[in-house]
Nucleic acid binder design. Sequence first.
DNA 1: TTGCATTAGTACGTGGCACAAACTATATTG
DNA 2: CAATATAGTTTGTGCCACGTACTAATGCAA
Lengths: 152, 152
Amino acid sequence: MASDLEPPAPAVGDAPLNTVDALVQLSFLVQRILGEVGAERGLSVIQIRLLGVLRGRPAGMLELATVLGLDKSSMTGLVARAEKRGLLKRSPSPHDGRAVLVSLTDDGKDLTNWGTAEIGRRISALTDGLTPPERARITELASAVVQAQRSG
Amino acid sequence: MASDLEPPAPAVGDAPLNTVDALVQLSFLVQRILGEVGAERGLSVIQIRLLGVLRGRPAGMLELATVLGLDKSSMTGLVARAEKRGLLKRSPSPHDGRAVLVSLTDDGKDLTNWGTAEIGRRISALTDGLTPPERARITELASAVVQAQRSG
DNA sequence: TTGCATTAGTACGTGGCACAAACTATATTG
DNA sequence: CAATATAGTTTGTGCCACGTACTAATGCAA
């Protein structure tokens, strides 16, 4: 299903990958790293992502739901659990009595910084086999795809 | 956290991405597509992946757990739910009385084929903004990373 | 101003997903 | 044969995600 990891298995796994398989497989590698890094500190991938979005600027629940691709009702629990762990806090919005501003606590910032560094190390290690120009190129091309999506 | 989607937000989101951010963001785009495609047929990403691994050859529970990066106990439920939906079946291994062989049913194959096609369409659309040589290059580089992981 | 639709967020119930620990049963090894 | 290792399941816990229904604040219109 274009998601085949072609494990140690029979050995048919060396056929060159097409674009779809290559990108899907690569995404699994990256996600696995995110999961592993998160697990070291009891964070799920979605929690890591939540912290990442909050790095920089506070956001409302609805905005977070949109960015993360979740239903707003899913945000309540997600934020509640992170809040209970002291990673972020809810404060009432000054401009809108209904709204809430979610922002990182100091603990949340620390954990976010740690995660950013650790993920950086491990994703970089992923591209260890590439030459510097190749690495620059894949960065460029991946960025182009990402940026195109942000506009489109 | 190297996972920032830089939403419609303020507009700081146009800085060029580094390697880590580019790959992480790209992985989220791909995973979102997998989730959306799966949702159209009530499949989670992990179910899609399970079907993908099973496409081609049957596998034991432990092998599946390894490939998918799950605990063996997680496989029981995953396979059980898919089996209940008629997507795959368990058969006793002929060589090992303890083991089980998981394989796709016809329904499972149909769904896998549909998913493969649909995912292919949507991932391809992701790279629509690239020129053909660029697309070939990102495929090549992504494949190199994936293959390197399989060996290392 | 009052009245009503809209918006932001929460509460609740359901089900999938993932884990660890304990368990069964079959293989394997000394 | 006894001890151990392996394949898989069971059970209990917690997270995650959804849809529906709800509260409360906002905004608009008459």
